[in-house]
Amino acid sequence: MELIERKRCVIVAAGTISDLDILKKNIFYDDYIIAADAGYTKLKSAGIEPHLIVGDFDSSDIPENDVELITLSPVKDYTDTEFAVMQAVERGYGEILIIGGLGGRIDHSMANIAVMLRYKKQGVNITMVDENHRVFTLANESKVIVKGNYYVSVFAPDGECKVKLEGFYYNNDELTLYPDSSVGVSNEIVDDNAKITALSGTALVIFSNLNM
């Protein structure tokens, strides 16, 4: 499989991955790949070898190969995916992509979003993707987004957040978001490029219906 050259850490978790092409499209040539528990079976099916496998393996068999393996106790204060993030950060990666962190159990999806928020405060950028979504955070920074056939929603899960929206159907020079508000849901890009600026607080940005 031909991969594109880029440096970051990709974590493949045990969440829903219904199409293995998402792995082949999102894993690049020089990514450092961590399989979290049953995420290894997804990688194996796609013909991709990870550099590290972690997990308590309560939902899959322990792999038998020469890849570095860290076996965890099922009784612990973090998920297998969070431990994979911890390992990525310890190994020096500040850019992390999680595949398989959404879908399936909503409690695990929420836990992964919580991990994204905590590590954002430490300067680590975590993005999660599945077949229909891309999720990332912004804090005191801007992101330019290319027009596409998808919805863009912005939330404030970590407290009050102010954002500036440009190039959208619903523009706003200073939109205040709160954790208990849905005002930022289902916006659309109308210009060739749009821009989201997190003026204060941490914004959670979700692209939805990527394949609609």
Rank of each mutant, 00 (worst) to 15 (best):
D66I: 10
V67S: 08
V67W: 07
L69C: 08
I70N: 04
I70K: 11
T71P: 02
S73L: 06
P74W: 05
P74E: 09
T79M: 11
T79V: 12
T81K: 05
T81C: 14
E82P: 00
E82A: 08
E82G: 01
F83E: 01
M86S: 05
A88V: 03
V89S: 02
E90S: 15
R91C: 04
G94H: 13
G94W: 03
I96R: 03
L97K: 07
L97C: 10
L97W: 08
I98W: 07
I98R: 08
I98L: 10
I99E: 06
G100L: 11
G101Q: 09
L102V: 11
G104Q: 11
I106T: 15
D107T: 09
M110S: 11
M110R: 10
M110F: 15
M110D: 03
A111W: 02
A111V: 05
N112D: 10
M116L: 13
L117P: 00
L117H: 01
R118W: 02
K121A: 06
G123D: 04
V124C: 04
V124Y: 02
I126L: 05
I126G: 03
T127R: 14
M128K: 07
M128D: 05
V129A: 10
D130H: 07
D130A: 12
E131D: 13
E131G: 06
N132K: 13
N132V: 13
N132S: 12
V135R: 01
T137N: 12
L138Q: 01
N140E: 13
E141T: 13
